[in-house]
Nucleic acid binder design. Structure first.
Lengths: 242, 242
DNA sequence: CGACCGTTTGAGTGAGGTCAACCGCTGTGG
DNA sequence: CCACAGCGGTTGACCTCACTCAAACGGTCG
């Protein structure tokens, strides 16, 4: 049976995933390892939890960069507009992941972040965070890792689009999302994609029809179950071998 | 007439591009704005300039991460190996650009860096650099910008591959390289790609035959001149409108 | 209830991949 | 010094994968 949305279920408890009570953020604002002084500073920096309704934006392309964000709950997509006006989905950000790191580059957000469902984000003013990084070594390390991870993810995404067939791209996408949910303590087998077929196609460099056809094919082969945007991965092994 | 390799020519002098005498690094180790104390620290951190012959590697996928690198002269490609063994070119790094930022993520280099020509790289030990970032605010800011720029570049690359036709991809690639040379004080119109057609194809998600055909088409239309890997952009405007 | 949006599925087409032949340059060994 | 092998590049012919266009369905909201 398919659940309508991903939920922590028993995974969090059983797999002993650390819980950041202040903002449920995974490793971005996870206090482990921080000196008490630095911890209280961090809490002072992260002062707001901002709710974002489905379809609303957290920031828009061109906005002046002031804050980083961390997804507290829900999920968001980032879209970039090309020179010719066409829009493309360039990122998917799940609960516990960071948002807005690309704005540091030239103090302007290059993309627009849109909530895929009613969500909540932590607002983290960049300047104070940078100061904190200078004082607490662990914090700086965490910041660098976070940015480096984003670089690795983007590179993987470019490879995904460039070197894989559409079947492989869909598989890679599903497994990527799955592993990201697992990392945050949610079920890696059942989750809700929340994106439309068009969003997925835009993200993976293919048309919405092809997305639909490919998912249908996988369903018929018994690799996945799905109704609408809810997905359940039935056969990981078989899925992995294309 | 086509030059065999990109060279500073008169651009550097005439356009007043800052020159970093210690390692010709553009903004990565460009001392402008650093306090004298921080500057001497920086020089202490960047202790080695390592020569790399064409085809040699600076680091390999799987190597433990210790150092960042900055390209002093020449150019390198980064390649990643997919699960199925196929290799893909994931990055191109020109003189003055950074290398290895993706290794911070989990203390392991995820890709292999290979020199496209006889080159030279600055070796920058990460730990001391991080300490310096904690002490000098400008240095931290620079570091963050550098990583954020890399994120933006990778996102652009994913969009390039995902949303553009092969013609558009080639144009976008040529203009990208061109603007990067301009930024470093080299001629934006004449440069040497150094990569094989296969490398370019791998980087742009297409076959080497298609790369060759497309470049030939552009040459016949008078948009570019080229012999071998040397390129001269003749008509920027016409090239830009696909 | 009807309009609309997202999705599914089908049929036809074309952009780009595949396979193959050939050219020119470079390096190597007889 | 020349012959030859090997690599990178170009071009052609053919084919296929994924896009385009089109139709129809189901759920949701006013």
């Amino acid at each position: 049976m398919l659940i309508p949305a991903a939920r922590p279920a028993s995974y969090r408890a059983s797999r002993n995933v650390p819980d950041c009570s202040s903002c449920a953020l995974g490793h971005l604002c996870m206090p482990n390892g921080l000196a008490p002084a630095a911890l209280s500073r961090l809490e002072a920096v992260i002062h707001t939890a901002r709710p974002v309704k489905r379809g609303e934006t957290v920031f828009r392309a061109g906005d002046v960069f002031h804050n980083l964000y961390a997804v507290r709950s829900g999920s968001l997509k980032t879209v970039s507009t090309r020179a010719d006006g066409r829009e493309q989905v360039t990122g998917l950000h799940l609960a516990g992941e960071a948002l807005g790191l690309d704005g540091i580059s030239d103090d302007t957000h290059p993309s627009t972040a849109i909530a895929l469902e009613d969500s909540s984000v932590c607002v983290i003013p960049y300047r104070p965070l940078a100061s904190l990084c200078a004082e607490a070594d662990t914090m700086q390390r965490r910041m660098h890792k976070l940015m480096s991870e984003q670089i690795v993810r983007e590179t993987a995404q470019a490879m995904r689009i460039g070197a894989l067939t559409v079947d492989e791209r869909i598989v890679s996408f599903l497994l990527d999302v799955s592993s990201r949910y697992r990392k945050r303590g949610y079920s890696p087998a059942e989750f809700n994609l929340r994106m439309t077929r068009e969003d997925i196609g835009s993200y993976l460099g293919m048309t919405l029809e092809t997305v639909s056809r490919t998912l249908s094919k996988f369903r018929k082969r018994g690799l996945i179950e799905m109704q609408g945007r809810a997905v359940r991965i039935v056969d990981f092994d078989e899925l992995q071998r294309v």
